[in-house]
């Protein structure tokens, strides 16, 4: 398998770095190597936040992202920040409520109600887990089983059931997706 690059972006406090850590831990369980980097602003909440994963079989020569295979945009603050790293093969997943102006180009953009789904499940903070469900269903980045196990081992037990529901809901969203 070649190397792949994933960016999870949005606003500080949306759990993007946690989501990247979960994805990274699932990928290592699948035998792959990851390099994870992050960028956030010097504020407690809000501001542009992102975490990148370079997925490879050995140590990545360059561990930072330069061409994205999958880009998640969970908040409008991040809608334009990564456009320069997209190409015709990129898949962009955006939040249909919080990203009103998704990037447009030769790449494929899919708009899905991550935050709305989380809200209907009772906690808007699981939008990151809903998004991981969509990434599992919509891309070949990581298997759903490994991700499910990684979610359980990287989050508090009291949220276990909510997270399982959020992950399943994210996978289900992709069955009825509409192009942005």
């Amino acid at each position: 398998m070649g190397s792949q690059q994933v960016r999870l972006s949005g606003s500080g406090g949306q759990g993007l770095i946690l989501a990247a850590r979960i994805l990274a831990s699932a990928l290592v369980a699948e035998g792959r190597n990851i390099a994870q980097s992050q960028s956030y602003e010097p504020v407690s909440r809000g501001g542009l936040s992102r975490s990148d994963l370079i997925i490879s079989d050995g140590e990545a020569a360059f561990p930072l992202a330069d061409t994205l295979d999958v880009l998640l945009i969970l908040h409008g603050d991040a809608s334009r920040a990564s456009t320069g790293l997209l190409n015709a093969k990129s898949l962009v997943l955006t939040d249909s409520d919080l990203v009103t102006d998704p990037p447009k180009g030769r790449f494929k953009t899919v708009s899905l109600p991550f935050s709305e789904t989380a809200r209907l499940l009772g906690n808007k903070r699981v939008a990151n887990i809903v998004a991981l469900g969509a990434i599992a269903a919509r891309s070949d980045i990581c298997g759903a089983g490994a991700l499910e196990a990684a979610i359980a081992s990287n989050t508090p037990p009291k949220f276990a059931r909510l997270n399982v529901e959020a992950f399943a809901a994210g996978q289900n969203l992709c069955k009825a997706e509409v192009p942005a």
Binding site: Q36, A60, P63
Partner: peptide, 9 residues
């Protein structure tokens, strides 16, 4: 900073 904050397998 890039190496300090980089997480790698």
């Amino acid at each position: 900073e890039a190496i300090g904050h980089l997480v790698e397998t």
